[in-house]
Computed example of a mutant assay.
Amino acid sequence: MLNIGCHLSISDGYYKAAKKAVSIGANTFQFFTRNPRGGKAKDIDLEDIENLKEVINKNSFAALFAHGAYTMNLCSNKERTRNFAKMILKDDLERLKEIPSSYYIFHPGSHVGQGTEKGIELIVEGLNEAITEDNNTTILLEGMSGKGSEVGRNMEELKAIIDGVKHNKNMGICIDTCHLYSSGFDIVNDLDGVLDHIDSILGLDKVKAVHLNDSKMPFASNKDRHEVIGAGTIGKDAIIRIINHPKLKDLTFNLETPNELDGYKEEIEMLRQAYRY
C-alpha cells in the first residue's frame, strides 16, 4: 500500500484535517505544529485528538508529519532567536506526546555567516537541550536545497548533527525530492547512485520520510521552488520511480506541491495508480 498524503491546515482541528485527507484518497497528512511564520500554537483539544485517533485507526493511516515552524533557527547568530527556537522545539515535542503516531520534521537552520561547522555545533547544542533520554517521538532533519547559509544541504552535514546528539536513537532524516535535486543529487538519472551515497554516509535506515515534490528550478540550482508533479524539471516518470523503488516503497510520502485540495487529489490518484506494490 502506498502511504501518501499532503500538507493540510489544522486551523479547524486535527479531526477535520484527517477527514479531508480521507476525502482525497490520502492515508496521512502533514501539518504545521504552529504558525509557520511566527510562534503561536493552537491549544490542543483532547476530544479532537480522540476523534483523530478514530479516523487514523479506521483508515489505516501511516505516521502523520508534524512540521516545525520556519522561524525555528537553532543556529542563528542571535542568541534571542536561538532561545526562541529552543522554546519552540521543546514545546512541540511536549505537545506531540498527545498526537498519535507522528514524525517531527524541521529545517536544521541557517548559520547566517557563522560557517557550517559553527551552525552544526549550535544545532546540536539546541537538540541536546531539548531531547531527553525518554523521548519517543521520531525527530527528522529535513535535507535542504543549499540556498544561502542553510545547514543540511548534504548527507555529511545531516550525519554530523545526528552524531552529535546524545539521545539520538529516534533521529533520522526526511528527504525532499525538490531539495535533493536542487542540491545536486541527480534523482532523475541516477537514483540508485543517490541512494547508495545516502546509505554510505548515513545509512538508508535513517531515511524515515519523503516530501514528494517536483521542482521549478534546474538541477543543482540550490533553489527551493516546488512544482506540481510532472510540471517541473524532475518530472512525473522520476517521481514514479521514486515511490516504486524497492528501498523507498515502504516509506511515507507527503506532497508539498503548490496545489489546492482538488490538485492534491489528482496527484494522489495518479501516484496510487502508478504504484506497483
Rank of each mutant, 00 (worst) to 15 (best):
H179R: 06
F106T: 03
N135C: 10
G164C: 07
K86F: 13
D176K: 13
S101Y: 13
E117Y: 07
S110C: 06
N135W: 05
E94T: 13
L93A: 06
M87G: 15
I131R: 03
D91K: 10
E156I: 14
A130I: 00
E157F: 12
G115M: 12
G152N: 11
N83T: 15
Q114H: 04
L180F: 11
E117G: 06
K90W: 13
E133K: 08
F185T: 02
L140Q: 04
E142N: 02
G148C: 09
T177N: 08
L122Y: 04
M144I: 05
E150I: 07
T116L: 08
L127K: 01
N136R: 13
H107R: 11
E156V: 13
I120T: 00
M144W: 01
D134N: 10
K86C: 11
N136A: 05
E142P: 01
D186Y: 07
I139K: 03
L122A: 03
F106E: 01
K166N: 11
S183D: 08
I105K: 09
R95C: 09
C174K: 05
L127C: 02
G152M: 10
G184C: 10
S183H: 07
T177W: 06
E150N: 11
N154V: 13
L96Y: 13
C178R: 05
K159Y: 14
S149F: 08
E142Y: 07
L89E: 04
